[in-house]
Structures are given as C-alpha cells and as structure tokens.
Design a protein around this nucleic acid. Structure first.
Lengths: 155, 155
DNA sequence: CGTGAAACTAACCACCC
DNA sequence: GGGTGGTTAGTTTCACG
C-alpha cells in the first residue's frame, strides 16, 4: 500500500475539507480532475479513506462533558477481553476505546450531558459488564486541541 | 440555540455520511431540498457543524501508535497553563488534548510512526516546554472503538 | 416550508498519450 | 499512470406562493 506525494496531499486536504469537489481538489494537487477522482476512489477502496464525517460542537449538542475511563479486568484471558470488547461496542456514550499495554486495561473517552447521566451510564451499563475488576474515571474540564488531520511523516 | 428533531436528524446523518447531498438528505429527514439546505447552512453558521473531514486509517498512513500522555505542571497559575496551552498547539503529533480536573494536568493523545519518533517528540518538543513537573506515557495496543457520531440525548 | 425553473457544475465515459 | 473533450445528470439557488 504505497502512497505517493500526491496521494498524501489528497488525504491531507480531505481531512480538513471533506466536502471538497473533484475539480477544486485536482487543482490544488496539480492534477486534472479525472486522475484526481481516480485516486480518491482508489484511496477509498484501499481503506485509506474510511469515510466522511461532519465535525460538530459537542457542547452545543448538549454533551459538554468528556470523561476518561480506565477499566481493568479480573483476568486477561482472551475470552474475557473479547467479551468486554463486544459488550462495550453497544454503548453509544463511548466515543473511543483503546486496549492499553501494561496492566492490560482499557482506556475510553465517554461523553455525557451531565454528571447524572454519566452516573447512569456507569450503573446501568458499564458496571454490568462481567469481569471488571476496577473502574477509574477522570474528568475533562476543557478540550484545548481537537485536530482533524494527522501529522505528516517527516523525520 | 435550539435544535428541533429534524436538525438533530440532519446532524446525526452528516456525522456518519458527511458528503451526503442535499437531495438525499432532504428525503431522509422528510423535507424538500430547499428548507433542508437552509437548515444545513444555519447549523454551520451557528457553529453546530464546524466542518467536514475525511476519516482515515491511521495505520495505513504510517502512524500506527497512539500514546496517552499525562502532563503535570509545576504550578497551576493561569499564566503557566496558558503558556503550556499555547506551546502544545504547535505540535502536530497531538491529536487531542484536554485539561483535566483534580491535579490540574493535561491528558493528550499523541500519534507516532514508531517508538523512535515518539521519543524524538518527547525530547525535542514536549520536554522543552517550560514548567512541566512530570510526564507519563501510556501506550495503546489497539483501538477497539472509533465512533464518529455523538449519542442522542434520551433520558 | 414548498414549488418550479434557471444556471451552473460535477461526474462519467471512451479514447489518446 | 495522466490528459481531453463531450455528454449526461444532478445540484444549488432564486423568486414566489
């Protein structure tokens, strides 16, 4: 899966302006529209570009709170991990979840309207998943960086 | 800033399919194209929709590693916080950064191509920011949830 | 909010280099 | 792999009910 300089430029631009048209994009990357469109389709087909999304203001949509939740499991057997993974997929409040190195736990960012609804999330959803040894919540006061575009590789 | 049911539906759809056309969107929300387009413009103008981005596969772009970095400052004076905030804005490797409650520190997700480039990020960038008391890095093995769409408010 | 018409543009294809 | 031209189809935008 090789990406040349033009592919990387296309990806960089579309990360910042996901609705840009083929014509404008082609001009910006120095191609004519047809090969530019071909590249975009190829990037989508290869799974480099996985979709297009509108970025929204979380506060304005009534979800001002982000909580980072660390979850440790009772044991690290593969079935336990898979079960947990399957269960949490169904929880809409979790925006992202990572398996971490070290004590083999999970780190997730949960969004909520207020502390009450976060508590409900804990009591009615997360703590009901079997196999959890501990849960730790850390609250975010404010987000100071939200970047849409991945850095370039240059070292 | 009131959003009715149709606005929320528009926002929900565009979070999952950011390139959807006015016609199709209008049909899905039960409106004719003109008022639907008017609503989208209004949502953008009010700052509910802040932009459109292509979602990409981080691994395929050569950045397979995510690291959660907790930074604690020497002191919590406003100037120290603002200085830190200003400095880290310039670091492309930081995809998101939150100010946390409690010990008043920062939590950020940093992406890297490999451990070497992460170490360079630490040594050449992050540790050179003045006023840092401690830095803790936790590595993600794998991301199991990446959600584009915020949950609905329903309680 | 909806309709209809006008103007514009974008996407697509076959073909050539 | 990139470029051109032409056709088609669709989109946006407006004035108005």
């Amino acid at each position: 899966m090789k990406l040349d300089a033009i592919d990387r430029k296309i990806v960089a631009i579309l990360q910042e302006e996901g609705r840009m048209r083929t014509n404008e994009l082609a001009e910006k990357v120095g191609l004519s529209p047809t090969p530019c469109a071909r590249r975009v389709v190829a990037l989508e087909d290869r799974g480099v570009i996985t979709g297009y999304t509108a970025s929204v203001n979380q506060e304005m949509l009534g979800l001002p709170i982000s909580i980072f939740v660390s979850v440790e499991l009772d044991n690290q057997r593969a079935e336990a991990l898979q079960l947990f993974e399957k269960e949490v997929q169904t929880f809409d409040e979790i925006m992202e979840c990572f398996i971490m190195t070290g004590s083999q736990d999970f780190l997730m960012r949960v969004v909520a309207a207020d502390l009450g609804s976060y508590e409900r999330f804990l009591q009615e959803k997360l703590t009901r998943v079997p196999g959890i040894r501990s849960i730790r919540s850390r609250f975010a006061l404010r987000r100071i960086i939200k970047r849409d575009r991945l850095p370039n590789l240059s070292h």
